[in-house]
Amino acid sequence: MKTNSSQNLFVYVLFLVICLIGIFFGRSISQEHSFLRVWEFSNLLLMMAGVPFLFLQQRAGLPDFLSDNVTRKNRIVYPVLLGIVFGILDVLVIKVLLHPEPYTELPPFLQPFPYSVFLYFSGAFEIEVFYRLIPMTIILLVGNWWKQGKYFQWFFWIAAVLTALREPLEQLPAGSAWLIAYSFLTGFLMNFLQAIWYRKAGFIASLSLRLGHYLIWHILLGIYVELIELH
């Protein structure tokens, strides 16, 4: 019977294999698409930074990736549905309201299908490792240690807010005040919910929420643009 930590490692390696397939896939079609975004092998090496934290989830008060105490609905279904809501919002605001005219080429945030599945899975995985897995595990480890966990809840909410701020601050768009406000508020809320789901159901739940968003915003919108607007 596998230990929880070895299950974490198994899942992590499986995710890395998907990223590796994406690298080879991208390189094989790079001559056909001048705008293609392709991961480098150095990206995979960088992801090794997350490995030590796979063995510290329980110590940090977080569920292991495949914890028996977490249902599949909480681990995958509900987070994906939440992410889909954010994806639909982005499509309605940014595509339907701000850019209703057809694209003449794929914009930078879209990539050709089915390669887009691998690229955006890899991107979501990378973000969750460096925005959630590493920082939240560190902060909550300290929270469990400090005064024997007396202020653990405070440490969690601080971690949730800090990790929720990073992405929207890094990706503030140029444009009107309302667009900047929309981008910041929805970005913060999605990341904040990811922190909550991470504590509730583990790393896969947080990743699933982001993948639900990417499914709509990056993958399905990309298919629509490729098949409808570019033809």
Rank of each mutant, 00 (worst) to 15 (best):
G50K: 03
F35Y: 11
V70M: 07
G202N: 07
I180D: 13
L110T: 03
C19S: 05
S5W: 11
G26W: 09
E128S: 05
R166G: 10
Q194K: 06
M190T: 05
R59F: 13
G202Y: 11
N69S: 15
W145Q: 02
H218G: 01
L56M: 11
S116K: 05
S30L: 01
F188H: 06
S30P: 02
K147V: 02
F41W: 15
L221M: 12
F24I: 11
Y131C: 06
W178E: 00
Y115T: 08
I204L: 14
K150L: 10
N191F: 07
L89F: 15
I180V: 15
F41P: 04
L62F: 08
R72V: 11
S122I: 05
G143W: 05
G61N: 04
L179I: 15
F152E: 00
L46S: 07
A201G: 06
K150C: 05
L9G: 01
G26H: 03
Y115M: 11
I180E: 15
E105D: 09
R27K: 14
V38I: 12
P168Y: 13
K95I: 08
A174C: 05
G202E: 09
N4D: 13
H213E: 08
I84W: 10
M1W: 13
L36C: 12
L220Y: 07
Y103E: 00
L56I: 02
L230D: 06
L45K: 05
I18V: 15
A201C: 06
M48Q: 06
K95Q: 14
I138S: 04
G26D: 01
L169N: 12
L44I: 15
Q7Y: 13
C19T: 05
K2I: 14
H231M: 04
P100D: 00
L16E: 01
K2T: 12
